[in-house]
Design a protein around this nucleic acid. Sequence first.
DNA 1: ATCCCGAGGG
DNA 2: CCCTCTGGAT
Length: 211
Amino acid sequence: MIKKKRANEIFRRLARRYPDPEPALDWSHAWELLVATVLAAQCTDERVNKVTPALFKRWPTIADMATADIHEVEEMVRSTGFFRNKAKNIVASASLIINEFGGRVPETMAELIRLPGVARKTANIVLSNAFHIHEGIAVDTHVKRLSFRLGLTKHTDPVRIEKDLMPLFERKNWGDINHFLVYYGREVCNAQRPRCTECELADICPKKGVE
DNA sequence: ATCCCGAGGG
DNA sequence: CCCTCTGGAT
């Protein structure tokens, strides 16, 4: 099957499986989503959701976080792993937003990736989910794995995968395709033991049963 | 390529 | 013990 046609079919089936896409991270505005997404690096969303309520209560605004004590932040995000880098980056990002972006989370890729600890994946999540702007497709561990297994890319580098994926889906669907692949990656096409026998994409999957 | 790093599953 | 979890910086 042609790759583009396979991509359309994947999107169609997953859109039916997930009719009401909801982000798994808890957030109420762009800054909270940015922080939650930074914390979600190599960590489950479930665990992130356990630490963010206290975090946002302790430092409710970007300006509050910009003046936070790093060590106190470290202790509150410790369980998410990489806690020193994450705490430092969150506070530094808050400062940069206050000092250079007028106190508001920027709404472009070029500006977002200037924030420490924020690269294309995190920026794409914030842009699509908080601002409904689709500059690219967020490529994380799930999107990477499923794109490769489903034959949508031959590459393993996230930037090249993103370039391979963008022409395969309509721009307005770039946010949804991330959500679909992440959820399907968790529920069926997981990393260790993909459930190929109960996979509704098996008939169009080049790697069925291989991995 | 390597480091950052805790928590949970198998 | 090993691998994985919506990565990013050096």
